[in-house]
Simulated scan of single mutants.
Amino acid sequence: MDRLGTAAAVAGGLLLLWVALLLLVWRSRSLAPREALRLLPDLVRLVRRLAADRSLPRGVRIRLWLLLVYLVSPLDLVPDVIPLLGHADDVVLVAWTLRSVTRRAGTEALARHWPGEPAGLALVSRLAGLPAAGTPPG
């Protein structure tokens, strides 16, 4: 019983942390739902292009392929039928993944593979908590 209680406490804590992160993403209003819908095709192409780029480290490419699998999978941490929060988990995972990929590959890789408009790339960089691609941090 002690292990079960500990496992339940850990799972509950992780769930609360996840919900808090989802609420922060939507509360910050860093990405309006309409903007997210416009960016979606470019984001999918960006992730696929980065994942196929053999000049990037293997671990980075694996992370990107796992993200793509998660995004197309019908199973989500937060079901998509829940208004707003249903898609927020996808936004959080994309932001985290792009941030970690950019730390290893550099913002230049994002800029090189971005298929859309420069304003969209600036928005994606902001969403991932990065300096605008192609500009030095600071």
Rank of each mutant, 00 (worst) to 15 (best):
19 V>R: 04
38 R>S: 11
82 I>V: 15
127 L>K: 04
85 L>M: 06
66 L>G: 10
101 V>G: 05
49 R>I: 01
89 D>K: 07
16 L>K: 07
57 P>S: 11
15 L>I: 03
68 L>T: 04
99 R>V: 00
85 L>Y: 03
81 V>D: 11
72 V>H: 13
120 G>A: 05
106 G>H: 02
91 V>E: 06
35 E>A: 14
107 T>Q: 06
123 L>D: 01
128 A>V: 01
66 L>E: 15
35 E>L: 07
89 D>R: 09
53 D>L: 07
7 A>K: 09
125 S>T: 04
124 V>H: 01
112 R>C: 05
88 A>M: 09
40 L>W: 14
55 S>V: 12
104 R>Q: 12
43 L>S: 08
114 W>A: 02
44 V>N: 08
33 P>K: 11
43 L>A: 07
86 G>W: 06
59 G>E: 15
35 E>K: 10
55 S>F: 08
21 L>G: 14
24 L>W: 12
60 V>I: 01
83 P>G: 00
92 V>W: 10
67 L>V: 03
28 S>F: 00
16 L>Y: 06
115 P>G: 02
26 W>D: 14
57 P>V: 08
7 A>I: 05
118 P>M: 04
108 E>F: 02
46 L>A: 06
36 A>Q: 12
110 L>T: 06
31 L>I: 12
23 L>Y: 13
37 L>I: 00
106 G>L: 03
66 L>D: 14
79 P>A: 04
129 G>E: 05
39 L>P: 15
70 Y>W: 12
46 L>H: 08
34 R>H: 13
14 L>P: 03
29 R>L: 09
74 P>M: 04
128 A>I: 00
29 R>F: 03
51 A>N: 13
122 A>D: 15
86 G>M: 04
61 R>D: 14
51 A>I: 05
18 W>E: 12
116 G>R: 07
39 L>A: 10
92 V>C: 03
14 L>G: 14
115 P>D: 02
129 G>L: 01
102 T>S: 14
98 L>H: 01
81 V>E: 11
9 A>S: 13
30 S>F: 02
71 L>C: 12
30 S>C: 01
21 L>F: 07
72 V>N: 07
57 P>G: 13
69 V>P: 05
88 A>N: 03
53 D>I: 04
7 A>M: 10
31 L>E: 10
49 R>Y: 07
100 S>F: 02
67 L>C: 09
